[in-house]
């Protein structure tokens, strides 16, 4: 490391320690840049892949109000993806490159979207549990050191809060409708509870990226702490609705005033993040197909622009 780089790194460290945000044209260590590219593009991919399990139910939504709300929610996710790809581009990577990484299977996205949506109650469950977990992660991350990501997250969290409320409304109405509605919710809860806990990632001791990210304020809290916050909040909500938590080991620790769960099935988690979850194949196929089938449209748009720019004419 040259003396100059060492000095820059020291300045960088001090800026972060002093609570300053880092902006796109500021000097930053290569590893900070690459970690952020990975993190923001993973988040963007999660939004885009996350459109699929919910998109699966738009055409079957059981009332006009629900249809509009679900469609608007999935559209928000496309908007978040758009926003996040733009935030990642400030680090010197193009959307096209990020898509290539995703389609080649080299980029990760949230493991939760590799689970299927099998009933209408899943539309409530995703809002309540999945968006609820995402909000806990992202409101923490909104205080991160990189300006464009932090600002994107502030806006995203506002919309996610609305999505969570929508999801809770779907569940509340199903439960209020009687035993059939409640059974639909419980069945969905049984499937989504454990995969949602996995969304927070491995235990801190096994999380390979954490130490650097904590130091640089790309990450502000450990996985276990955030997961626990989610568990404590959600168990109470589930009990209020009269739902059963699918965990025979769940117990309340009077000393820590906190709910303790059984152990997560980490084998399942590893299988899902390594491409072998129930829907990994379908999700990737859907994205590749959309991209491949759209190639001629993108070509046409480019050809049109080029033709009219060359002729000095106007374009639509």
């Amino acid at each position: 490391m040259s003396e100059n780089t060492a000095m820059l790194e020291e300045q960088f460290r001090r800026r972060i320690a002093g609570g300053e945000t880092i902006e796109p044209n500021d000097w930053m260590p290569d590893k900070y840049r690459s970690q952020l590219k990975r993190l923001i593009s993973q988040h963007a991919h999660s939004e885009i892949i996350g459109m699929l399990p919910e998109g699966n139910w738009i055409t079957r939504a059981p009332s006009l109000r629900r249809k509009l709300a679900l469609l608007a929610k999935v559209q928000d996710e496309a908007g978040h993806g758009h926003y996040l790809y733009s935030a990642a581009e400030t680090l010197g990577i193009s959307r096209e490159e990020m898509f290539d990484q995703l389609h080649a299977g080299k980029a990760k996205y949230s493991s939760i979207f590799n689970y299927p949506t099998l009933s209408w109650a899943d539309m409530g469950m995703i809002g309540w549990l999945v968006d609820g977990a995402a909000i806990i992660n992202q409101t923490t991350m909104a205080k991160c050191s990189y300006g464009p990501y932090s600002r994107a997250l502030l806006r995203i969290c506002k919309e996610e809060n609305f999505h969570k409320k929508q999801g809770m409304e779907v569940i509340a109405m199903l439960i209020a409708s009687g035993p059939k509605g409640k059974a639909m919710v419980q069945e969905s809860f049984d499937r989504f509870w454990w995969p949602t806990l996995m969304m927070f990632g491995p235990h801190d001791a096994e999380s390979p990226n954490s130490p650097d990210m904590l130091k640089w304020k790309i990450k502000l809290k450990g996985n276990d702490e955030l997961r626990q916050r989610f568990i404590d909040m959600t168990v109470e909500q589930a009990h209020a609705w009269g739902l059963t938590i699918p965990d025979p080991h769940l117990k309340f620790n009077e000393q820590t005033r906190s709910w303790e769960t059984g152990e997560i099935d980490w084998k399942e988690f590893q299988a899902v993040i390594n491409g072998n979850g129930p829907c990994n194949h379908e999700r990737m196929e859907a994205r590749r197909n959309a991209h491949d089938n759209g190639a001629w449209v993108r070509d046409a748009a480019r050809a049109y622009e080029a033709k009219h720019r060359r002729n000095g004419g106007t374009t639509v």
Binding site: I48, M51, L52, G55, I58, T59, L64, K67, L68, L71, A72, V74, Q75, A78, G79, G81, H82, Y85, R95, A286, N289, A290, N293, G294, A295, V297, R298
Partner: peptide, 27 residues
């Protein structure tokens, strides 16, 4: 709305969903 998540470019995912919302909202 059947296009949602499958459009040729991300901007069109947003646009088609938006137009679908308008249509269903008017209905």
């Amino acid at each position: 709305s059947e296009w949602c998540g499958h459009a040729p470019i991300l901007e069109e995912d947003i646009a088609l969903a938006n137009i679908a919302l308008d249509c269903i909202g008017q209905s």
